[in-house]
């Protein structure tokens, strides 16, 4: 019996390790390729670890292109991802409170609208939205990448509503009876209780905005405005670069923030999704 149990456990770990290797190998390959000597990256593509370690790729890659270093691009990404995350997280929790706790005329209608936007793919409204922002004179600025997020993001609103519904209503009611205003209840009672779900949405939002390629690709036209993802795409175009080492080095750097956030807060992310049962 115990032997059978041990065999099953070994089989379980064997399967998991195999899957993990397949899952993580491309990522590790990218990481270690950035430490290989640039001219040998593709020649020794079969080896995971470099035969000769070097950090030259990072130095070469960091120089960037068109007179702008990757420092500029990373700073731009930080600005765009940071501001849009602040907007998305706080507007979403505010909106979610309205849906979760206040009964008012039209709330069902607007909630349905929110569910529609949850399923509406961005690609479908990409062209007309571009025309709208062009008319507003927003192309070539960060406004199209930031402003829409201050009107809430359906995914986070839905997540927040689900979370708020699990908080007993009596808490709000008691505070209201004690003379607390509606906004006071939201600010002093609901917001502190929602910290876990706010963290989850903040991390998701930051990672998604950081990685966003389509938005910057459509709206940014000057190299000094490029975000890291857009810069990386242009940097990796075969016509502009054949320095594979530098390309891998910058690719690695571009996913470092997301990986750090994920590793530090993976409990929030994995459980955040697992408890609300939502897509990602």
């Amino acid at each position: 019996m115990t032997q059978q149990k041990r065999a099953r456990k070994a089989l379980f770990h064997f399967t998991c390790v195999c899957v993990a290797v397949i899952m993580l190998y491309p990522l590790l390959w990218m990481l270690f390729s950035s430490f290989k000597v640039s001219s040998t990256v593709m020649r020794e593509a079969d080896k995971l670890l470099p035969t000769q370690w070097t950090v030259q790729n990072f130095i070469n890659g960091w120089k960037g292109f068109a007179g702008h270093s990757f420092g500029t691009f990373f700073r731009n990404s930080l600005l765009v991802a940071g501001l849009s995350t602040i907007g998305a997280v706080f507007s979403s929790v505010l909106i979610a409170y309205g849906f979760a706790r206040i009964k008012f005329r039209g709330s069902d209608f607007w909630f349905a609208c929110m569910m529609v936007t949850l399923m509406l793919p961005f690609q479908v409204i990409m062209v007309p939205q571009f025309l709208l922002f062009t008319k507003l004179g927003w192309t070539g600025t960060y406004l199209p990448l930031i402003v829409p997020f201050f009107c809430g993001q359906a995914f986070f609103i839905y997540m927040d509503v689900q979370f708020m519904r699990s908080i007993p209503k009596e808490l709000d009611e008691a505070a209201m009876i004690d003379g607390c205003s509606r906004f006071g209840v939201f600010w002093h009672i609901m917001l502190p209780l929602c910290v876990p779900v706010i963290c989850t949405s903040a991390i998701f939002s930051f990672i998604w905005r950081w990685e966003d390629f389509l938005g910057p690709f459509l709206y940014l036209n000057k190299p000094e405005l490029y975000t890291a993802s857009l810069a990386l795409k242009l940097f990796s175009d075969p016509s502009s670069s054949s320095d594979f080492g530098a390309m891998f080095a910058m690719a690695t750097l571009s996913v470092v923030p997301a990986c750090i956030l994920f590793v530090s807060f993976q409990k929030y992310l994995v459980e955040g999704i697992a408890t609300t049962g939502l897509k990602g």
Partner: peptide
């Protein structure tokens, strides 16, 4: 641990970096 490891590619899978890796793979 395994859950986190298997979820990591989904977190960064949409990025330009992964697109570059995929091309080279």
């Amino acid at each position: 641990f395994y859950r986190a490891a298997f979820y990591l590619p989904s977190i960064i899978g949409g990025s330009v970096a992964i697109a570059i890796v995929w091309r080279q793979v």
